[in-house]
């Protein structure tokens, strides 16, 4: 018997690549040269950072590989004593700036990604709970969020960083510094996710498919995890991308202020701060190149995030 109401097309078994290439998102992407450039630059920096030990000509933080005679070599010029050429120059201790940037980007990206992941997990969880449970739980979570939002993120991060550091014994400070940094950036940034997820949850939880699941006796946890979460993840992806740029900048700011990662594991922000001391004595390259790298990274990721937000918003199509 033929069914007039059933669709005659076979199930969509096309490969994942085919689906990506056919999507509206990819079509939009392929028509924006600036976004393609941003994506490429981001990808290059991420890959360079990931493979830093294989790409970098030197291991910049192994004191045995440094030669003090190489200090303050300008970019693309042979050193007056050793004749070595460094294409981004060296710092006061003869450290190759290019290698330092590769290793520094590694720390910056690590802290950025980890902080965003931490903030997103915390914010999504609290947002889901606040939106789904409502009432007093909602009020408490969202008032905390409001209070935190009334302070600048950097102030909150500095505060959390200070408190956490004072709780850690002295001998562990150096190893724990990165984790403390991730914690403080993450804690200063969860509000965004919580607010977005809460408002989407409020809309989703009254939809009939959630009520249907309740009729089947599905637990609140399963409803949140399997029904609501997949439907609120779209906006989270967007603020996550923009949040990554902000987290990298926040990390660099903290490191620039000298409260971030220790000088033994410098991030891009630390490199900029160190180089900043030599700026007025003419050694401009020590701070300029890490600065440009940070600029390109933050700008590219931010542009990608902005594009993603617009491209996924059906009202702007």
């Amino acid at each position: 018997m033929t069914n007039p109401t059933s669709l005659s097309t076979p199930p969509a078994d096309a490969s994942i690549w085919r689906r990506i290439l056919d999507s509206d998102l990819f079509y939009d992407f392929s028509r924006r040269p600036i976004i393609i450039l941003s994506a490429l630059l981001t990808l290059v920096i991420i890959l360079a950072a990931a493979f830093a030990p294989w790409i970098a000509p030197h291991t910049p933080f192994d004191p045995s590989s440094l030669n003090l005679m190489d200090g303050f070599t300008p970019p693309m010029e042979p050193n007056a004593f050793t004749g070595n050429v460094y294409w981004m120059g060296t710092d006061s201790q003869g450290r190759d700036i290019f290698s330092a940037i590769l290793y520094g980007a590694r720390i910056s990206l690590l802290v950025g990604f980890a902080a965003v992941a931490f903030a997103a997990i915390l914010g999504i969880t609290l947002g889901l709970i606040a939106g789904y449970k409502g009432g007093l739980v909602d009020t408490i979570i969202m008032r905390i969020a409001d209070v935190q939002l009334s302070f600048p993120a950097i102030l909150v991060a500095l505060l959390i960083f200070g408190i956490t550091k004072s709780l850690i014994p002295n001998e562990m400070q150096e190893q724990a510094a990165i984790y403390v940094l991730i914690l403080s950036i993450g804690l200063s940034d969860w509000v965004q996710y919580a607010r977005t997820v809460r408002s989407s949850t409020l809309a989703e939880k009254n939809k009939e498919y959630v009520q249907a699941a309740r009729l089947f006796g599905v637990s609140s946890f399963r409803i949140l995890a399997r029904h609501i979460l997949p439907n609120v993840m779209g906006p989270v992806l967007v603020i996550g991308t923009i949040g990554l740029a902000l987290a990298i900048i926040l990390e660099s700011t903290l490191s620039f202020l000298g409260v971030g990662v220790p000088a033994t594991q410098p991030s891009l922000g630390t490199l900029i701060r160190v180089g900043n001391e030599f700026l007025f004595s003419g050694e401009w390259w020590i701070t300029l190149f890490p600065g440009i790298t940070l600029l390109i990274l933050a700008l590219s990721v931010n542009l990608l995030g902005d594009w993603l937000r617009d491209a996924l918003n059906p009202r702007l199509r």
Binding site: K207, E208, Y209, Q211, A212, L215, H227, P230, N231
Partner: peptide, 12 residues
């Protein structure tokens, strides 16, 4: 069991 009004909202 229940059948809902809006078939566009009742299926995830």
């Amino acid at each position: 069991q229940m059948i809902f009004q809006d078939p566009f909202a009742s299926l995830n």
